[in-house]
Design a protein around this nucleic acid. Sequence first.
DNA 1: CGGGTTTGACCCGCGC
DNA 2: GCGCGGGTCAAACCCG
Length: 445
Amino acid sequence: MEITLLRPGDRDDRVKEVDFFSDKLHRSARAEPATTDGPTACMDHSVNTGLRLLTACSSVVEEKPRVHTNEELIALRRELGGLKDENVMLRSQLDQLMRSIGGLRAQLVMEMQQLEREKMRSEQKEERSPAPLTAQQFIDPGLAVALDIDEPSEPTDPPPDDLNAGAKESPQAKTAETSSADQASSDVPCRKARVSVRARSDAPMISDGCQWRKYGQKMAKGNPCPRAYYRCTMAVGCPVRKQVQRCAEDKEILVTTYEGNHNHPLPPAATAMANTTSAAAAMLLSGSSTSTAIASGFYPSTALPYPASTMATLSASAPFPTVTLDLTQPPPTAAAAAAPVQRFPLLGQPMYLPHQKITSLPSMGHRLPASVMETVTAAIASDPNFTAALTAAISSIMGGPSRDPCSNNNSNNSINNGDHHNNVNSHNGSPARPPQSCLTNFSSK
DNA sequence: CGGGTTTGACCCGCGC
DNA sequence: GCGCGGGTCAAACCCG
């Protein structure tokens, strides 16, 4: 099964491979087998987002009275209502599927990486000579820890007791991480690998749907802005932590680095981010294929009118392998010249490859768009302009309550850190309290 | 009074 | 071994 995530900004080319909504269109067409003129022309344009399906159907209904009786019109309207409900339901299911796919794909990548790594290990033992350092090998330490969970009996791996040796964690966190094989297999690698999101935002933190408690702050070398340390407080012993720091070069850029996987149920918005960190970390740990997976996964070049570029980069200098999702900088001139429409049509947010480390953008079928795109939306949610535009657009498209994944379950204000439940700044009890920690400290220190 | 924040101290890994 | 820097702890403090 192949699912392509549709976004309001997606254009004509991509709709061709969205079976989910095309099926809906077909069903609509079945209800109108004789219609060939207006509706078809209408759908040619409405298809471009997929989400405009209902609009298309509405226009179809409006065409009907010319040739059908009132009873037929009523029946069609009933059917339209049913289709709308079904549309909402299916979209909900799709949403869930995409999240599940994100996690499963991350797990699959790790499993595949395990096999590849074992193969490489055996080859290196045979050769007995140092091979050139590759991205694959660079990230191996973290991956090795991950694989210990699944194969504790492997002699070359450290004992399970060393699983968390690299990071100080509470006993509760350790218990949570090792509570189950599945949990551990997804937790540990992400405890090592990190996902960093760079977003231009005035807010002290991007709203990612989780509750965070600040446990420390430190001045980092080379950056006048302090780095704040947060841990997830949605569940006792949740190992997820994140660091928030303003960019030294541009104080408007907020760098949020996530580490670990949640050990508890998450609200939709938080699930998006959690899946993203997991998937992105897994992609990172997948080695040389990582960059192509990210690059092609975000915008499959075969399906998009835009170059398959993104802002995912690997960091070789970080203590842990890190995926950086950069949503801040303008496209480089060369890329901009080659891709004049390299933007989210709706959001107007340029997406690009800021670094040259991602060298190839193959037209591969490999896809990991959902979680990555959700990260983008989560990060973009920190920007009032983008979120406002996004909300308005989705609302207009859906013709109903916005299902914006950035909305943190609530409408309007929740997008912009107004969500009383998910607002990381409110910290449960003080939504009206002005942001004291990050923004204040960043500006004052 | 409970929960979150602040901040100095401490721990640990790493490079020299 | 030593110093440095990142990450974490925990007592003090703040706020509703």
